[in-house]
Design a protein around this nucleic acid. Structure first.
Lengths: 154, 154
DNA sequence: GAAAATTATTTCAAGCTTAAAGTTTTACAA
DNA sequence: TTGTAAAACTTTAAGCTTGAAATAATTTTC
């Protein structure tokens, strides 16, 4: 996914766009992952789960998390397991439906996330510093329209 | 990395851009991965390695591959191991420097890649179909400038 | 030319990821 | 009811991923 187009023709331009999109996000992702590890001894997937939960004090179901984060169910299970064992997150049995459990940040988890998120936002600002405000808005708009277009598809 | 901004303020816009960028690439990546699996019983990392090698008939060193693909050395070792065991790639010992080996596509590997790449290009065209030609060019340009800006950084 | 540093690669442990199969619980329908 | 399907999760096997440690070969330095 990171190599160049192998031919010329009609699909070439979009392929080029895709490759650049992927390289850009991989570059930024790798840098953020490394900094999360070095500065806070945590990982991107843990951060993602905590970010999702932080927005919703009442908690989320496992399936909500997996849908929201665009990853598989089994994946979320493992990450939440680890967060629980570190005391950052809890699984609360529900009265209504015993298949499900509400996943919530603990107080410690919320505090920890808030600290990391503030620094993280600064990193993103730094790493995307080369993009002007105008470009940022424009890019974000295009990506949004791409996304809504896509979502209607499946 | 997929959740929304947790605050308002100066860094907010770039954070939003980053989240959209990441969601877009993850969505496309997931779809391509699934199709590669279903249609060709292969994976994205294998495809990436083969794409890199396809451009360079004389082959690449392991370290070239890892640099080019933006992944770690140990990672490439495992993927190439599997490709070798499937007969799609060879490791050739070099006379000059016995630490290194040239990794090349086999004839079968090149043939296999060419088939997959053609279909893959079509998929990307389809998945990015919601982006107009104009937008595609513009986006690609911005991402390119981001990338060169970034590369001067480290 | 021997010791030290560097380079290229592999190995390892831990964690992430998916798809598929399995478990438990709930909902529904005859 | 009571069985059948559906839903929410977890488990499993295989593979991907990283950073760090280990190997081996080359280059540099004295």
């Amino acid at each position: 996914m990171v190599a160049g187009p192998t031919s010329t023709g009609p699909g070439k331009e979009r392929l080029r766009l895709w490759i650049r999109l992927l390289r850009a996000s991989r570059t930024i992702e790798a840098e953020l992952r490394e900094r999360l590890k070095k500065e806070f001894d945590t990982t991107l997937p843990r951060f993602d789960v905590m970010a999702a939960l932080y927005r919703v004090p009442e908690g989320m179901l496992m399936s909500d998390l997996s849908r929201f984060l665009l990853v598989s169910n089994g994946n979320v299970t493992g990450i939440v397991d680890r967060l629980v064992s570190e005391g950052l997150v809890t699984r609360a049995r529900r009265n209504g439906d015993r298949r499900t459990s509400m996943v919530r940040l603990t107080e410690e988890g919320a505090k920890s996330f808030a600290t990391i998120a503030a620094v993280h936002e600064g990193w993103v600002g730094e790493l995307l510093g080369g993009v002007s405000d105008d470009e940022a808005r424009q890019l974000a708009g295009m990506l949004k329209s791409f996304r809504s277009n896509w979502e209607g598809r499946e």
